[in-house]
Design a protein around this nucleic acid. Structure first.
Lengths: 121, 121
DNA sequence: TACGTATGTTAGCCATGGCTAACCTTCATC
DNA sequence: GATGAAGGTTAGCCATGGCTAACATACGTA
């Protein structure tokens, strides 16, 4: 039941699109992540079967309680790591890209150390 | 010709083992990385065909010039990122583990920002 | 009504990078 | 000389996560 990197990315993007547009469809995810419709379709099927999302009659994508929790965790890491890199002098765009790669692997311990650094600075 | 994460890990480990033991065989890599002999054998074949390593008559593994450069780059990143996390208060073991994941993805820009932070601190 | 566009799905392919099973070679020891 | 251990390889399987091709469905418009 543990989430792989790509699943975490999809959940995060669902949350980001919900904030931006108020709703989320597969085609929006495909555009935002630069992947094809079948890739999204397949990923959504997995997330549905694992209980992280549901899709209503009109194929709008909704996060379940566990999906919401997982998405929030990754999104929080994403924003924190972006701020952190910016604080070190990295440009916004690069900081966002690198945060997107680090957010999945970093241990709780290192992530908390980075949070502390940001607070104390 | 660009290196994937696992290839970078193998090259890095070859350099680490050379430092530790003075020589490198496939079986040592397997033990150090906790993978099976066939996995190493397959990876070494790829690295050989891509010109990053050679193997002598007795199957000792040697880095070529390009292999040496790639290994040095990743190993340098590994040590720098480990120091960096330790400087933030992360324990040695966790710092090493996390450095091992970050070392492949991080952009040059972010890596340099981290180097600057370590120097100026 | 027929057609085109937007959205989603299924089927099937590919690369990466693990794994086990089986085999080969070399070498030391009984 | 037979046996077994150590090291390496090949063949073939699996999961992850992309891709294209083809199809289904809905909906608006000529």
């Amino acid at each position: 039941m543990d989430l792989h990197e790509s699943s975490e990315n999809y959940l995060e993007m669902i949350m980001m699109l919900r904030e931006q547009k108020g709703y989320v469809r597969s085609v929006d995810i495909a555009a935002a992540l630069s992947v094809t419709k079948p890739s999204v379709s397949h990923a959504m099927k997995q997330l549905r079967e694992s209980g992280y999302i549901t899709m209503d009659d009109e194929n709008y994508i909704l996060l379940t309680v566990s999906g919401e929790a997982a998405a929030r965790r990754i999104y929080h890491r994403h924003r924190t790591l972006t701020s952190f890199l910016c604080a070190l002098g990295v440009s916004e765009d690069v900081a966002r890209e690198d945060a997107c790669k680090m957010e999945h692997d970093l241990s709780e311990e290192s992530f908390h150390a980075i949070c502390r650094f940001l607070e104390e600075r």
